[in-house]
Simulated assay, not measured.
Amino acid sequence: MNKKPVPVFRLPASVIVQLRHVLPEVAGRAVTAITAEVPAYAEAFAGEMGAKIEGAVRAALAMFLNLIARADNAEGARGAPMEPALEGAYALGRGEAKYGRSLDALLAAYRVGARVAWRDLARISVEAGVDAMTVTEFAELVFAYIDELSAASVAGHADELASTVRARHRNLERLGRALIEAEPAHALAAAAALAEWTPPATLTAVLLPERAIGNLLDLLDQRTLQADADGERAVLLVPDAHGAGRGHLIRLLSGREVVVGPARPWERAAESYARAGRALALSLTGDTEDHLVALLLGADPGALSDLRARVLAPLAGEGEASAAKLTETLRSWLRHHGRREEIAAELFVHPQTVRYRVTRLRDLYGDKLRDPDWLIMLTVALAT
């Protein structure tokens, strides 16, 4: 807290004694005026809390009288520290921020209290025979003191807000991390409560480079969570991007280097993150809903390789070029359910060429091309 010296000020000791004597009455009148003129404090001043606040007002006035008494009576007391009063005002500002209130009411209360207190203090000083110039200097000191208290409260309020914002940001980051790490439901609920985060119905994981975030968060639901996947890539958990909302999200992300996982109930956001991660590992981008077959086939590359080797075994005796053409024709034959004209159009060959190749495939595979189980295996193996 900054120290600010109190200037040397000549107020008779007898006057200060009188001022101390009336402090309780002055504080009471200040509280009454604040209650009447600052509605936000009417409830706070009621009952036991009112007595405490009145005591705080009385203490602040007493501190001021102590300061000017020291400045008046002790040559070395110039610059007497105001720390106790400033620390109290600073704490008051932090308290207002903690309760979610702005500083408007508190600063208004300072102004009202200073006006009422000064009216009483000035009256007693004049009645004690203090000259006009001294009374004027006294007024300047009173209001300078109130300005210092106000500034301390403003600083406390700002610091508390900044601290609160930082703490909530940390709690939201921890929640995002807990979600993608699939922590238990009770732990997720506790983390959400600590972060003051209202759970949505679903969350959708979006993977994107850190550099690509830009102003994207401003365009998304305010409840969107952010977590770090690694040093270069970030994870956004977007609320309620299911149904029609998914189309809106995909359009919003258009043109960005992203991978979008499926929407999942918010406690199961890790599933969305995991699928987006698998897509990224397979160099797939955009909407994972458009890559479900590739994701399925890429889930176990070794199994897929073994399956391909098994279903293409009948072609082992063919030359490399012939095997490649027959494999290409078999894939198209499966896609178009044997319709020769469509196969020829896709492969850019004559229908008669298709007829020849399919005949060769029937010779090699025999009854397998009529076996449903084999047809499924061929379809899966040749899907990509």
Rank of each mutant, 00 (worst) to 15 (best):
A195W: 07
A195H: 03
W197R: 09
T204W: 07
A205E: 11
A205V: 01
V206D: 01
L207D: 10
P209I: 11
P209W: 13
A212F: 00
I213M: 10
N215F: 08
L216T: 02
L217Y: 02
D218W: 05
D218M: 13
L220V: 09
D221F: 04
D221A: 08
D221R: 10
Q222M: 08
Q222K: 10
Q222H: 13
R223E: 03
T224L: 06
Q226G: 00
A227R: 11
D228I: 04
D230R: 02
G231V: 08
R233E: 15
R233A: 10
R233L: 13
A234Q: 13
V238P: 11
V238S: 13
P239M: 05
A241G: 03
H242G: 03
R246K: 14
L249Y: 09
L249K: 04
L249C: 12
R251V: 03
L253S: 09
L253F: 12
G255N: 10
G261I: 13
P262V: 08
A263L: 14
A263T: 12
A263C: 11
A263Q: 08
R264V: 03
W266F: 10
W266L: 04
W266N: 10
R268G: 02
A269T: 02
A270Q: 03
E271F: 00
R275M: 15
R275W: 03
G277R: 13
A279W: 01
A279T: 06
L284A: 05
T288R: 07
E289M: 06
D290W: 09
D290Y: 05
L292I: 14
V293K: 07
V293C: 05
V293Y: 07
L295F: 01
L297W: 00
A299H: 14
A299I: 00
D300V: 07
P301E: 11
D306H: 15
D306K: 11
R308C: 09
L312C: 13
P314V: 00
